[in-house]
Amino acid sequence: MDPVPIPTPHINAIGAATPDHDIHEAFIGWAGEQLSDPREQAVFSRMVERSGIDHRWSVLPRGANGGSPVSPEGFYAQGMPPTSARMQHYAQAAPELALKAVGNLPETLDPASISHLVVASCTGFTAPGLDQLVARKLGLSGAVERVLVGFMGCYGAVTALRTAYHIVRSEPEARVLVIATELSTLHLQPEDSLEPLLAMLLFGDGAAAAIVSADAQGLAIDGQFAATLPDSEALIQWHVGDTGFAMHLSGEVPGRLGDALAQSDLRSAICNGAGLDGIDSWAVHGGGRSILDAVEKGLDIGPDALNHSRTILREKGNMSSATLMFALQRVMQGPPVDNGIAIAFGPGLAAEGFRYSSA
């Protein structure tokens, strides 16, 4: 008896969405006021200019007279809200933004066609979970199998897509809806020192949805890889506190990533033992300009290789796990790809990704 062939999973389509409230400039003004040291103020201003970010979008409502979350009557106007208030907003806004991303898929979603739902998010907790809230609002069958990827940070979309990949390989008829939704702007923190304010400067809100199946259209995904850097667990941390989730993002991260990517063992894992010369497409998580610079230098790739990632960073900031799917969407809208690499970075310090090609 001939063995049953294992299907090749494909990302058939991606839809993406951001809110319509641009909070980037308002944050810059607020953050500058938190710093009392003139030297730190000057450094912060320079880093703003060098950030490569023009806009970041928030689900938080506009304050008085259309103001920002830090303006009078804004979400943060009366001090730092407790975690409970932030999670209440997450439970309402996260499903809405996720549904907006699903609505932006190239073709209208048929709820009856979905067999599995995989949702990634690290910026909120609620029960029933975001997976169940989205499933109900989409009208998915109660029999749909669900997975919730929580608190994995910026590489959460890789884990979600990898989960869909394994589902399709084991169930060739499966049609998996993958969603990454992040509301980072719910977690503004009362800080008066430079490093945490520079970390908060990066993040915005966004959501992306993808259909993964054995249908040979879109991007074929294969060649999963994962690597955790030794002695790096203190470099990125995400703590649940009384006033939201507090992130620690060390300034050492870009340098450590760049050094790791320059090593032959990690390069070999990323390229499946082949060289980088044959790679014709990159979908890299735009964690920040310094991260993208480190990737470009560490892998010794051309100055235009990360254009998709730099464009997303400029227009939307770092949307945590959703960011990589925005990059993959731009890849799918471009010319055919023979050998592409998707990669994201997050707590661990870890690098996770996969290879892709056009169907």
Rank of each mutant, 00 (worst) to 15 (best):
P5V: 10
P7T: 04
P7M: 08
H10T: 04
A16R: 12
D20A: 07
H24R: 07
A26H: 09
W30A: 13
A31E: 04
G32I: 05
E33M: 12
F44M: 12
R46H: 11
I53V: 14
H55Q: 13
G67C: 14
F75D: 03
A77G: 08
G79Y: 05
P82I: 10
H89A: 08
H89D: 03
A91N: 07
E96W: 03
G103L: 11
L109P: 04
P111G: 09
S115A: 11
G124Q: 05
L130T: 01
L130M: 06
Q132F: 01
V134Q: 15
L148V: 05
L148P: 04
G150K: 07
A157D: 06
T159V: 00
T159F: 02
R162S: 12
I167P: 08
I167G: 15
R169F: 09
E171F: 12
V178M: 04
T181R: 05
H187M: 01
H187N: 12
L188R: 06
Q189K: 12
P190H: 08
P196L: 00
P196E: 08
G206S: 10
I211K: 03
A216Q: 15
I221W: 07
D222C: 07
D222F: 15
Q224F: 15
F225M: 10
F225A: 13
A234K: 02
W238A: 00
H239E: 09
H248R: 05
S250T: 00
A260Q: 04
Q263W: 09
D265G: 13
G273R: 12
L276P: 11
L276T: 10
G278Q: 15
G278V: 11
D280T: 06
V284S: 11
V284W: 08
G287R: 03
L292C: 00
G298N: 06
G302K: 14
G302Q: 11
N307H: 09
T311E: 14
S321H: 01
A327H: 02
R330E: 13
M332W: 01
G340L: 10
I343N: 08
F354G: 14
S357G: 11
A359Q: 10
